[in-house]
Amino acid sequence: MSTERETEEGESSSRGEIGRGHGYALHLVSGIWFELPLKYASPVRPIGNGTYGYVCSAVNSETKEEVAIKKISKPFINRVAAKMALREIKLLLHMDHKDVISIKDVIRPYQKEKFDAVYIVYEFMPEDLHHVLKSDTPLKDDHYRCFLYQILRGLKYIHSGNVLHLDLKPKNLLVNEKCDLKIADFGFARTISGTEFMEDSEVVVTPAYRAPELILGLSEFTAAIDVWSVGCIFAEMVKRAPLFHPKKSSDLLRIILELIGSPDEASMDFLRSEDAIKRVQDLSPLPRQNFTDQFPDMSPNGVDLLEKMLVFDPRKRITVQEALCHPYLSHLHDDLYEPVCSEPISFDFENQSLSEEEIKELVWRETLKFYPEPIS
């Protein structure tokens, strides 16, 4: 059995065909074993961690294209993890849009009894927006517009498919040297009609990008949640640091209101919860900050769009379509290049009390779309 080492360059090693004769090879990538079909050739290099998995790159020797492969370890340990894996696969196989990452393969293990990890193969993107913002790469207003437009164009498509992303943040926005951007990581996404079936242990939206209605415990989710997150990302592109970054999650609402000001009574009647209303009222009335002063490097139209995104009341928040038509993006906006999803997606499995094993069977069936014949 041959062994190949590339620890200095890619922190990767390969163990040939693992001595099983099933057409798979083991690759050690930053301490994580990837069991991949032989068509995914070396060098296999680490990329990083996704929301709930480890990611490496490889070359598909059949197509000669570089791909990203996410390994979800122990995905069937509980219902929440299992549904996250199934949800992302089903969503991305349903979608087809240039601003949404695409799935190339869902690797089927050589034995169903050995199905203890899920490998999803995506188109390759070299970086995420988080790393760009942490780097010394200079960004100008044209970059902000370009990235923002692609996020909103992708969201228009996603929302038209009856889907909310619910975890938009720079780490989940993949980019390349041409400034192409793709929305990724759909493990927390929900169909709009299925949000009421979320389990108590499931958390949506990373705190720094969480809308006020989520902080205050509303159970009714709308597309406005994603718009709030986009506003936070827009501001972060300009500031090169998260807009809201509390030391404790309990401070997040106060920090938000210190920027956008305390809501008036009319902007609070959507809360419909005495506890939520009390949480807002317990904070001393806070004045709204001047956004132009807070974002001196942002153009006036950019400031106006940001203000319309960061609105306390989700009913008054700008919509994705309105944002695409805003003067800040007018030179990019074109309805002909902003398609909607051809058919809304619905998840019957979200409404059922399925066991981990039952969800595992559904994921297995998804792999059969790529591997319909028995593996010899």
Rank of each mutant, 00 (worst) to 15 (best):
M1I: 09
S2T: 10
E4R: 01
E6P: 00
S12V: 02
S12E: 09
G19W: 15
G23S: 08
V29H: 10
F34N: 12
E35K: 05
K39F: 08
P43L: 03
P46G: 12
G50V: 11
G50F: 09
N60Y: 02
N60E: 10
E65R: 07
I72D: 08
A81K: 14
M84E: 14
E88I: 07
L91K: 11
H97D: 15
D99A: 12
E113F: 14
A117N: 13
Y122W: 11
F124K: 05
M125A: 12
V132R: 08
K134I: 06
D136Q: 08
T137E: 07
T137K: 02
R145P: 08
Q150A: 05
Y157I: 03
S160I: 11
S160E: 10
H165N: 13
D167H: 11
P170M: 00
N172W: 00
R190I: 01
E196F: 00
E196I: 05
D200C: 03
V204R: 01
V205Q: 02
S219M: 14
I233W: 07
I233Y: 04
K247H: 08
D251T: 10
D251M: 09
L257W: 02
E258G: 03
G261F: 01
S262V: 08
A266Q: 14
E274N: 15
S284C: 04
L286E: 03
R288K: 15
M298F: 07
N301E: 10
L305W: 01
R317F: 14
V320T: 13
E322Q: 13
L324V: 05
H326Y: 05
Y328G: 06
L329R: 07
H333C: 03
Y337E: 15
E338H: 07
F349N: 03
S353G: 12
S353T: 15
K369C: 04
E373K: 03
P374A: 06
S376T: 10
